[in-house]
Every structure is written in structure tokens, then in C-alpha cells.
Design a protein around this nucleic acid. Structure first.
Length: 477
RNA sequence: GGUCCGUUCGUCUAGUCUGGCCUAGGACGUCAGGUUUUCAUCCUGGAGAUCAGGGGUUCGAAUCCCCUACGGACUACCA
């Protein structure tokens, strides 16, 4: 069996969105699983859509994600160059070969004539007008400098059948196929042509790509056949959708890798989530390292139907990864989110409290808002149905709490908790009730990253007493 | 409009090829209960899918066949 070689071939048009990333991931997984090679190729044949730095985004994303390629513009290889705009002459040569073989032809038709071919339903199919030009006519037009393109000469009869590893065998009538442009008037190839030439020259064994290419695949096969080249294995991937009827798109600023990364999602978690969108590992496990994915990945598990991207599940998965980060490392990554805290708090303690309570680092500001924002909170927070607490209860209990904490000798979590515990007996309250009231009194927030005694340690004795005092005043009014 | 592809809990999916073990399994979310120093983690349980709809084949269909509906892709000198 020949070596497995897969390729990720993005066009540098901006950010790497999740669908693209998944294609790259599957290419990588399949290559690694089979001890093959993973190749990066930049498809920049559309001069109109060039975006600055887009190539750098591709490199950095792959690097962050750990999807290292064996060959590519930045790492070299035997099949370069790996940037299509640098391969211009290659495409020209092969296009000419097709012309010589009668599988392609020069076309000099202008925009107006092309547009006149549009039918009632808005579809335009080229009528092979220039196919019938004589050799001398072509030569004359060429030498007089009339702009031209080279078109594929699709047979008008018969059918073309191809096999896709996900969608099975697909047959189409050749008469449905168009005489696609292979070489544009700017001399650069279209995607349709460059892809075929490059995949062959780079000895790509398996082509992974979005299913939008399913309908143009017969055209590619006709090209392979005309050249007498072996057709690669096709693996078309279902789309990742934003909702039932809309694809994820970078145009609408939808999910892209960099955004999630910047929001404090871990690359491993993003990869893990994305791997499972449209592929099933045949186990009930949900969390996989990249290494495990390499071991398990198989084309058979890829599904045919599109999947809706669910940020909630990604958030959950990312939380699982965050819990496993070593405490020190977590603290380091959380630090930037503490920058705006004005109140003096023990940040190491804060990190240790936060780690099990967030799904992404960007959750932190909301979780710690209570540290600085204390004034004017809603007193109804004291009323809790589960704990069966009331505002009145708070009025009665808090003076005693304040008194006890003023007398508190040892200011540690354990000692303070012991004090609380003792109070529940004298006050004849349930632990849950007392702790709820204290926590609300100290934070003014319904949800906080720690309990009533940890809170005292976190914000310190002085602030604890201040806040209690203040709450008591508010409760009297 | 034409061609191609798809359709199982709200979402990701298992099961479909090789019909019976599927009174359709798991995960996220949701709800309830429990542990816990409140919040969260964690644990247990519940609700949630007449397998898009209809017809057929069969002793038996989510699974095979046909039709319909809905959704998507393509139909560019974009990729």
C-alpha cells in the first residue's frame, strides 16, 4: 500500500474558523494514525481575496493546536513550492497538456457573451463556443493579445461515477457538468484546477474537504482521467452549522479558533470538542487527548449529516480541561484577569477557588465582580427558598455574627468555620441558613467562587468587618 | 429552476451496511434529590426521540425499497 499523505489546503482569507480547523484536524489525525505525512498548502490563487497576515494566522493556529505538518511553505519538503501563487508555471504547463490532449481549450469569450448565456432560472452554462475555433484562429487571437481563459472540455454524454468514503458512490450525468475555467485570464489557475494538479504532484493519497465540493468532484475526476493520473481517495466532510439552516461563517464573526483561544479556551479542549462534531469514536468516552484521537481516528466514524456547533458543550469540556491544569499554571493564566481588582485579596487563594468553578478563563471577571462591587446590592438576596432564609432572619443573626468575628482570634478558614458552627447551635439555625446569610452579607452576590468562611479569609478581617457593619446599617433602614 | 447530499431526545451522537438482543443507549443542557462550608465540584435519579411523514417488503423495520416534505450544497475567470 502506498504511503498515506493528507493535506490541509486553506485559502488565506482571514481567521481560521472551526470548520476549517476540523478539516485540518482530521487530515492530521488520519495521517498520524497511518504513519503518513500531513502537508500544508496555501491556496492563494484568488488575488481579490488576499488578506494580510492571513497566512501567519494559519501557521500560528496550527502550531497552537499542535497540528504539526511535515511539509509546507514554512518547513519545506520535496514537493514544493507549497504556495500556489508560486506554482504558476506548473499549472500553465499542465493546462497546455490538456489542451493538446483535447481535454481543455482556449476560450476568448467576453463578459457580455457569457452573460447572454444565462437562462431563465439564472443558470449559465458555457456553450463550448470557442471549442470549435480552428488552430489558426486561436493563434491569431493569442498573438493579438485578446484575453483568454482555458476551459475544461467536459464530454457531453455519459456519466461519471466516484466513490466517497463518507457519502458512498455518487453518479452524475456528464451533461450536468460545466466546462469550468481552469486557467483564469490573469494566468492563475482556479481552485478546481490547481487542486487536481497539486494533489497529484504532491502525491496526496486522501483528500479531506468540506462536502460543498461533492458536486464538483466529477469534474476533477475527468481531469485526473485526462491526465492518466490516479484518483485520490475522497473524504468529504459534513458542514458545521451555526443553527439549523446557517453554516458557520467567518463573515459573520462566528466561531473561530482565535476568538475562543483569546477567551481562555484551551487548544486541546477546542480540538477535542471539534473532533467529536461529525465523528464518533465508537466509545462513550468524551474527553480525548490529541494522542488518543490519533489512535482512535477512523474514517468510518464520520457522519453524513451536518452538525450544529454548541458553545455550551464546548464550555463544559473546556472546564474539564481547566480542572486538570496544575494550580501554578492555572494561576499564571488567570493573573491577567485580576488586573483590575482594586480590593486587596489573596490572589493565589482566589485562583485555587476559581479553578473548579469556571468553564473558560473569560468567566473570571463575572465571578469576581463582587470583590470590588459591594455597594447597593439587592437585599432580597437574603431570602432563599431552598435554605428557607428571610430578611428578618438576617436582621436578627448578623449582629451576632459581627460580634463573633470581631472577637475572632485565629483568622483562618478552619477557625472561622468552627466559630460559625458553634453559632448555629446557639442561634438554633441550620448551617445552610446561617452560611447563606453570611455569604450574602459579605459579597452581595448570589453566586460566588467560595463559601462563607473562605470568603472572610479571601477579603481579610478588616473588609469583612466593614462589610458586615455596612450591611447592618442598610438593614436597619 | 436543475443536479447532488442529508433528516434518531433542545444539541452532539450510538444503533442502519450484516432486519429480531432497541419497551432506541450515551454525552451536554434541563429538572429533582444527595454529599459538601453557602456558590461550584462530585454522586444518584427524572423528564426528554411514536427513529421527518406516508406507502410497501417481511413472521418481524430506526434498520431494506418507493414516494412526499423539509433542510443544505453546487450551479463564478471564489475556494
Amino acid at each position: 500500500m502506498t504511503e498515506v499523505r493528507t493535506r490541509f489546503a486553506p485559502s488565506p482569507t482571514g481567521f481560521m474558523h472551526i470548520g476549517n480547523l476540523r478539516t485540518a484536524l482530521y487530515c492530521y489525525l488520519y495521517a498520524r494514525h497511518n504513519n503518513g505525512k500531513f502537508i500544508l498548502r496555501i491556496e492563494d490563487t484568488d488575488q481579490q481575496r488576499q488578506v494580510e497576515n492571513a497566512v501567519e494566522v494559519i501557521y500560528s493556529t496550527l502550531k497552537l493546536a499542535g497540528l504539526n505538518h511535515d511539509e509546507g511553505p514554512d518547513v519545506g519538503g520535496n514537493c514544493g513550492p507549497y504556495i500556489q501563487s508560486e506554482r504558476r508555471e506548473i499549472y500553465k504547463k499542465y493546462a497546455q497538456e490538456l489542451v493538446d490532449k483535447g481535454a481543455a481549450y482556449y476560450c476568448f469569450c467576453g463578459k457580455e457573451r457569457l452573460e447572454s448565456l444565462t437562462d431563465d432560472s439564472g443558470t449559465r452554462k458555457y456553450d463550448k463556443h470557442c471549442l470549435h475555433l480552428s488552430a489558426s484562429e486561436i493563434k491569431e487571437k493569442l498573438s493579438s493579445g485578446i484575453p483568454y481563459v482555458i476551459r475544461q472540455n467536459v464530454p457531453s454524454g455519459g456519466t461519471t461515477t466516484f466513490k466517497d468514503h463518507v457519502y458512498g458512490e455518487i453518479t452524475v450525468e456528464n451533461k450536468e457538468l460545466h466546462d469550468n475555467v481552469l486557467i483564469k485570464s490573469d494566468g492563475l489557475p482556479t481552485y478546481n484546477f490547481a487542486n487536481v494538479v497539486d494533489d497529484h504532484l504532491m502525491q496526496i493519497s486522501h483528500v479531506f474537504r468540506g462536502m460543498e465540493y461533492l458536486s464538483s468532484t466529477p469534474n476533477y475526476n475527468l481531469l485526473y482521467n485526462a491526465f492518466g493520473w490516479e484518483i485520490p481517495q475522497y473524504v468529504h466532510l459534513p458542514h458545521i452549522m451555526k443553527d439549523k439552516s446557517r453554516k458557520l461563517s467567518k463573515r459573520h464573526g462566528d466561531a473561530n479558533f482565535e476568538d475562543f483561544y483569546n477567551k481562555g479556551y484551551l487548544p486541546e479542549a477546542i480540538l477535542n470538542y471539534v473532533a467529536l462534531l461529525g465523528w464518533n469514536p465508537k466509545t462513550e468516552q468524551e474527553k480525548f487527548s490529541l494522542k488518543e484521537l490519533v489512535e482512535l481516528f477512523a474514517i468510518e466514524g464520520i457522519s453524513k449529516s451536518s452538525a450544529i456547533f454548541d458553545p455550551v458543550k464546548l464550555h463544559w469540556l473546556n472546564g474539564l480541561y481547566i480542572k486538570e491544569i496544575p494550580a501554578q499554571e492555572f494561576h499564571k493564566q488567570a493573573l491577567p484577569y485580576y488586573e483590575n481588582i482594586k480590593t486587596q485579596v489573596d490572589k493565589t487563594l482566589l485562583s485555587s477557588l476559581l479553578q473548579s468553578r469556571i468553564g473558560a478563563f473569560s468567566d473570571i471577571p463575572e465571578k469576581i465582580a463582587f470583590i470590588d462591587n459591594f455597594d447597593n446590592f439587592d437585599l432580597s438576596y437574603f431570602e432563599n427558598k431552598d435554605a428557607k432564609t428571610t430578611l428578618e432572619m438576617a436582621r436578627q443573626v448578623l449582629p451576632a455574627v459581627l460580634k463573633a468575628l470581631k472577637e475572632q482570634q485565629e483568622w483562618t478558614n478552619e477557625a472561622i468555620f468552627a466559630t460559625y458552627n458553634a453559632m448555629t447551635e446557639t442561634l438554633e439555625l441550620k448551617k445552610k441558613q446561617l452560611l447563606w446569610i453570611i455569604r450574602i452579607a459579605l459579597t452581595g452576590a448570589l453566586s460566588t467562587p467560595c463559601g462563607a468562611s473562605e470568603m472572610c479569609v479571601l477579603i481579610g478581617r478588616e473588609l469583612t468587618l466593614q462589610r458586615l457593619q455596612k450591611v447592618l446599617e442598610n438593614l436597619q433602614n
